[in-house]
Write a protein that binds this DNA or RNA. Structure first.
Length: 449
DNA sequence: AAATGAATAT
DNA sequence: CATATTCATT
C-alpha cells in the first residue's frame, strides 16, 4: 500500500482476505454472501467521504501568507521566534504549527544562505590588495561598495508580491530595497518610493543602489590608450543584507518573482525587538578598486579623489576616506575592447540615453560572466541569477567616452531600467532573452541585450 | 504533553 | 524545489 492509504484500498484488501477465509470455511454456500460484500465494496468512493484518510491540502505559501509570516517573525523578534508563536500571530485558519515550522525551516535556511553570501562578499572585497597583477587586459575596474543603515522594511515581501508585469515593476522592486521605512504590507510601488530618509536623492537623481560606470580616455592615466576602459561600480545594500536574489516563486504558477525583500530582508532590528547583535553584522563602508592593468600608486592617487567625489555624490551621507580605498589588479573585468569602443559617448541627457548600451550585446556576452564577482554589479546580486536566463541584461552598465572624472555622473540602474522599456517583459517572457540578440528591444537607440 | 528543529519523505 | 512528515530532544 502506498501512502496515503485510502479506505478504498483497505476495503479491497480486506475483501480478498475475507473472501478467502469464507471460501475456506464454507466453500459451498457463500456465494450470495460474497456478491453482497462486493457490492458493498464497490460503493466506497471518494476518499473525501471519509475524514479519516482525507488528506489535507498542502499549504501554498502565497505571497500574502508569507507576508504574514514575515511580519510575525519580525514582530516576535529573531531570537524568540517559534512556529507556535508565529502561527498564533499569523492567525490563519487552516494553518498548523507544522506548516509554519516547515516554512520557518526554509526561511532560516534562506537567511543563512544570504548571510553567508554577504560575508563572503565582504571578505572578498576586504581582501583585495595590490599584489596581483593582471596579465593582458588593460582594463581598470573600480569597485566600491558601501553600506547603509539596515533597512527598516517591514514588508517582508516587497518584490515577490507582484508578478512584475507593469512598467515600473522591475525598478520598483529594485527600489524597494533602499526603503528605510515602509508603512506596512502594501508599499507604494511608484518610482518615487525610494525615500531614503537619511539619503535623499541627490541632484543627479542618483540612487544609492548603485550602478556601473565605464569611461574611456580618462585623464587618469595619460598613457592609457583610448580604448581603455574603466569601470566604476558602486553598490549599496541594506542592513548587511546582500543583494538581489531571483527565484521562482511560487513555483507552481511559474511566475518569476524577486524574493529579495522577502527573504533577504532579515528581521529588522526594530526598536521593540532588538535583534541579537553580532548576528547581523554590518560591515563598514568599504571602497575598493581593482584594475587589470599595471597601475601604479601614482595613477591610483589620481583617481582616488575623483572617485571619492563620485561616491560622495552617490551618497552624500557617506563619508569615505582615501585610506579606505584599495586597489586590485585583475584581468577579469571587461575584456571586450570592441564592446567598449561601441559604448556611447555622452553622459548628459540620460533621459534620452541615445548612445548607451546596457548589459550585454552579442560581443559583450562574456562581460558579466567574466567578472570575478558579477554580483557586485549594480548592487544587485546577479550571481544567483537563474542559469536559464542567459545574457540576462541586468547589469545596467553604462560607459562613457572621453569623459573626465570631474564630469562623472552616475545614473541609476533603475533609471536605466525605466528607460529601457523592457520592464514589461522582464520576467514574463524568458524566451525573449534567450532568443537572438537582434530581437532585443531597441529603444531610443539604447540596446538592451 | 507539547514544542521544536533536523532529517527525511513526498 | 516546496511542503509535509517523522523523530529525537527539549
Amino acid at each position: 500500500l502506498l501512502k496515503p492509504v485510502r479506505m478504498k484500498e483497505l476495503r479491497n484488501i480486506w475483501q480478498h482476505v475475507y473472501r478467502k477465509k469464507m471460501h475456506e470455511v464454507k466453500e459451498i454456500e457463500v456465494d450470495s454472501d460474497a456478491t453482497r460484500k462486493r457490492k458493498d465494496v464497490d460503493h466506497g468512493d471518494q476518499d473525501s467521504s471519509d475524514g479519516a484518510t482525507a488528506k489535507k491540502a498542502r499549504v501554498v505559501w502565497s505571497v500574502d501568507l508569507h507576508q504574514k509570516f514575515v511580519n510575525a517573525v519580525n514582530q516576535i523578534g529573531f531570537d524568540k521566534v517559534g512556529p507556535k508563536k508565529i502561527l498564533d500571530l499569523m492567525n490563519v485558519p487552516g494553518l498548523t504549527r507544522e506548516n509554519v515550522a516547515s516554512h520557518l525551516q526554509k526561511y532560516r535556511l534562506y537567511l543563512g544562505r544570504l548571510q553567508k553570501q554577504n560575508e563572503e562578499r565582504i571578505l572578498g572585497s576586504a581582501r583585495q590588495d595590490f599584489s596581483t597583477k593582471g596579465p593582458s587586459s588593460e582594463n581598470l575596474n573600480l569597485r566600491s561598495s558601501f553600506q547603509e543603515q539596515p533597512s527598516n522594511t517591514s514588508s517582508g515581501y516587497p518584490h515577490a508580491s507582484q508578478k512584475i508585469q507593469g512598467q515600473s515593476s522591475v525598478s520598483d522592486s529594485q527600489l524597494e530595497e533602499t526603503k528605510r521605512t515602509v508603512p506596512l504590507p502594501a508599499p507604494d510601488r511608484s518610482m518615487n518610493s525610494v525615500s531614503s530618509a537619511a539619503e535623499p536623492q541627490n541632484v543627479a537623481g542618483v540612487s544609492p543602489i548603485g550602478g556601473v560606470l565605464s569611461f574611456k580616455g580618462l585623464p587618469v592615466n595619460q598613457d592609457r590608450k583610448p580604448s581603455e576602459t574603466m569601470i566604476l561600480e558602486c553598490q549599496a545594500w541594506t542592513g548587511g543584507v546582500p543583494a538581489k536574489q531571483f527565484m521562482q516563486y511560487p513555483k507552481h504558477n511559474h511566475a518569476r518573482c524577486d524574493l529579495l525583500g522577502d527573504y533577504a530582508c532579515l528581521p529588522k532590528p526594530d526598536l521593540e525587538h532588538p535583534t541579537a547583535p553580532g548576528h547581523l553584522f554590518t560591515p563598514p563602508p568599504l571602497i575598493s578598486m581593482s584594475c587589470s592593468t599595471e597601475m601604479d600608486a601614482r595613477n591610483f592617487s589620481d583617481v582616488k579623489p575623483a572617485l571619492l567625489d563620485c561616491i560622495k555624490s552617490f551618497s552624500p551621507a557617506l563619508t569615505c576616506t582615501a585610506d579606505s580605498v584599495s586597489v586590485q589588479i585583475s584581468d577579469s573585468v571587461v575584456t571586450s575592447t570592441d564592446a567598449a569602443d561601441r559604448k556611447f559617448s555622452s553622459v548628459e541627457g540620460l533621459p534620452s540615453t541615445k548612445d548607451c548600451y546596457f548589459g550585454q550585446t552579442s560581443n559583450q556576452g562574456s562581460w558579466l560572466r567574466s567578472q570575478e564577482e558579477p554580483s557586485i554589479i549594480c548592487g544587485a546580486d546577479f550571481a544567483s541569477l537563474p542559469e536559464d536566463l542567459p545574457g540576462y541584461p541586468l547589469q545596467g552598465g553604462v560607459s562613457f567616452e572621453n569623459v573626465g572624472l570631474s564630469s562623472i555622473d552616475l545614473f541609476h540602474y533603475n533609471d536605466a531600467m525605466i528607460l529601457s522599456g523592457l520592464q514589461s517583459n522582464w520576467y514574463d517572457d524568458q524566451d525573449h532573452f534567450s532568443s537572438e540578440t537582434t530581437d532585443y528591444p531597441l529603444m531610443d537607440g539604447c540596446l538592451f541585450a
